[in-house]
Write a protein that binds this DNA or RNA. Structure first.
Lengths: 212, 212
DNA sequence: GACGACATACCAACCAGTATGTATGTTCTC
DNA sequence: GAGAACATACATACTGGTTGGTATGTCGTC
């Protein structure tokens, strides 16, 4: 009940609020997220919250920028980029996502990005643009990786890298949603395997060549 | 302001409430849906609403069962089943979905099923099971169509029909979400074309045969 | 006169937001 | 180096509005 944190560390207060707000928004979405719940979780008072973020919307935007975006970068874009070959990188990305979903509780909550996109991007332009940033970066990272793969002779030169990248991001988002609803990771695994299978058609050595 | 409907047609009252509730839930999600807004839209009073549905949750469940489920059946499952060949049926399903997204306003709102799945299936078992019904039926319809296609020599016999069906449903849901966020149908089209391309690998005449 | 189908009025809980107060830290002045 | 002046970082108490839900009353039909 009594706050154990030092009450005068502005940075720590801000970070604590961001953390609790992320949790609350992840569980309940933004609109159903309760500021009082966030304050209860942190032991911070309303005055401090409004001092740091100005409004609930401001807090939401900050969560997207400072928590969700780095999360995607570190968890998915990093591993993809550090792979030796983009096709291996995409497979690794899928496995990484599966690992995440296998953690207890995560399956029920789904993908934070997908959740916020679904809830907010139709009704709040600030959320939409910030989430679009994340999805665009995700897509561009894959697309650039594939283009580099073409240059290095690892990926078939006729591959439309941007279309494939869009396709992969969308498919994984959808797969998360499906698994979330099923309360079962099996649908995700089925999708991931389908995608991994599909990846073979992107390799430089064409299994079947289309007419030129 | 004054209700123009006849006030004594129970069935009509119920249907009007379901319609307005669907619209409100489609726009704002279930939790942010306001009963007062639904009442305002219909000219019905709170007493009538609670007489017919008992609770907001009851109204929500009824919307899923009596509006969302039939919508999916009529809009997507019907056309798929009436196609001469499951691969053609899947292509038609994708085009049908694209037509829908091209209607003004729909792109911003996204897919009603995906919206509710994302919002509710983690926090309300009643919603989850009802939405799972819809997604399962969707998947099974495609899976059965593919299996029949195998029997009729239209689809490659080694195709894992259920996995492919899951993959397709998930990918389309994800594509909707992506396009919704982008405020642009292009990502959906990219995904749809990727999926149509992928469909060629399911045909009975194998372009490349795997090792037996 | 009984029952189905509402209508009206009201309630407690919760919501985001704000006005105001206060303790702490820094900076400037002499 | 002491003390005033000021800004930072909160804390507390409150507000107006909205929420889902309910208790009770009433009208029309069989």
């Amino acid at each position: 009940m009594a706050p154990t944190r030092p009450n005068r560390d502005a940075h720590a207060t801000r970070e604590a609020l961001l953390g609790a707000a992320f949790d609350e928004m992840y569980k309940n979405g933004f609109r159903a997220a309760s500021l009082d719940a966030i304050l209860r979780a942190t032991g911070v008072t309303k005055g401090a919250l409004y001092y740091h973020f100005g409004s609930k919307q401001g807090l939401g935007y900050a969560v997207v920028e400072e928590r969700v975006k780095p999360l995607v970068r570190e968890r998915y874009l990093g591993p993809f980029e550090s792979a030796s070959d983009p096709i291996e990188g995409l497979k690794r990305m899928g496995r990484r996502m599966q690992e995440e979903l296998e953690k207890t509780g995560v399956l029920l909550l789904g993908c934070p990005v997908n959740n916020l996109v679904t809830e907010m991007s139709g009704v709040d332009e600030g959320f939409r643009s910030r989430l679009a940033d994340i999805l665009d970066e995700w897509r561009d990272t894959i697309s650039n990786g594939l283009r580099e793969g073409i240059e290095r002779g690892l990926v078939h030169p006729e591959v439309d890298t941007e279309a494939i990248a869009t396709f992969y991001v969308a498919a994984y988002q959808g797969a998360c949603g499906f698994a979330k609803n099923a309360h079962d990771i099996a649908p995700f695994v089925a999708c991931r395997e389908g995608l991994d299978d599909h990846l073979q058609s992107l390799t430089a050595r064409p299994v079947a060549s289309r007419s030129p």
